[in-house]
Write a protein that binds this DNA or RNA. Structure first.
Length: 222
DNA sequence: GGCCAGGTCAAAG
DNA sequence: CTTTGACATGGC
C-alpha cells in the first residue's frame, strides 16, 4: 500500500503540478481561511478575506475590537456567518491571552498537545485543526477531507469513513514529511474537484478507475 | 429549483 | 455507536 500511495502521489503531481497550498499571507490569515472554508467554496472565502484585509482586520487584536455585526457582514459570502464569526473571535481571544499574541507559541508545543488544545474550541473539528497544524504550524499531520475520503472509497484503498483511521492510513503509508503531506492533500482536492464529485453523475468517469472505461484514466494503472 | 461546496455540533434513533 | 438536522451563501 505504501507503494500504491506513492504511485498515486507521483501521478497526481505529474498531472496537476505543484499546488502551492495553503494560499495565505501569514499564519493568522491561514487560520482565518481554515475556519471560513468549512463546507464552503474557496472562491467565497477569498472574497471574505479580501474584505477583512481591506478593513485591516487580519489581526487578532483588531478583530476583537470590531463588533460581531461588522465581522458577520464582511464574511457573509462564506455562509454560516454567525457561527464563523463566533469562531473567529474565540480563536482571536485565545491567541491573545492564551498564546501571548503569537500563534508561534502554540506551534512550539508538541503536535499532539497543540491538536488537543485546538480541538477544544467549539467549531474547530479535526479537519480544520489539522489544516492549521500542517499549513500554519508546519507539523507533520495529514489532513483528511471529504475528497480524500471519497477517493479512498472509490479506489477501494480503505473502507472506513472514520477520520482518525483514514488519517492513520495515510500517515503510516507515506513518508513523514511536511511538504509531502501538504502537497498530497492539495492534490487530492484538485483530483476530487475535477473528477470525484459527491454526485456520481457529475464524475468524469474516463478518469475514474472504478468505472468500466477507465483503462486510460489518470489513476487506472496505479 | 435542486444540489453541492477544502465541516461541525447536538439531538435522536 | 450511527444517522440526521441545522447552520447560510453563491455558483452551476
Amino acid at each position: 500500500m505504501v507503494d500504491r500511495l506513492g504511485k498515486i502521489y507521483a501521478k497526481l503531481h505529474d498531472h496537476f503540478g505543484p499546488q502551492g497550498w495553503w494560499p495565505a499571507d501569514g499564519p493568522f490569515e491561514m487560520v482565518i481561511g481554515a475556519i471560513l472554508t468549512q463546507n464552503t467554496t474557496w472562491k467565497n472565502v477569498e472574497k471574505a478575506i479580501a474584505s477583512l484585509k481591506a478593513e485591516g482586520l487580519l489581526d487578532p487584536m483588531d478583530l476583537i475590537k470590531t463588533g460581531p455585526d461588522e465581522i458577520q457582514r464582511l464574511i457573509r459570502p462564506t455562509g454560516y456567518f454567525r457561527q464563523k464569526t463566533e469562531r473567529l473571535l474565540a480563536i482571536s481571544y485565545a491567541i491573545i491571552d492564551k498564546w501571548d499574541g503569537d500563534l508561534g507559541n502554540l506551534f512550539k508545543k508538541p503536535a499532539s498537545q497543540a491538536r488537543q488544545e485546538l480541538l477544544s474550541f467549539k467549531g474547530l473539528g479535526p479537519e480544520t485543526v489539522d489544516s492549521i497544524l500542517l499549513y500554519a504550524g508546519n507539523k507533520p499531520v495529514f489532513v483528511v477531507d471529504a475528497y480524500s475520503k471519497r477517493i479512498c472509497e472509490r479506489l477501494g484503498l480503505i473502507k472506513t469513513k472514520d477520520y482518525n483511521e483514514l488519517q492513520r492510513f495515510f500517515e503510516s503509508n507515506i513518508p513523514v514529511d511536511v511538504e509531502v503531506y501538504k502537497e498530497f492533500h492539495a492534490l487530492l482536492v484538485a483530483l476530487g474537484k475535477e473528477y470525484c464529485s459527491s454526485n456520481e453523475a457529475n464524475m468524469k468517469c474516463h478518469l475514474c478507475p472504478l468505472e468500466a472505461d477507465c483503462e486510460t484514466g489518470l489513476l487506472a494503472q496505479v
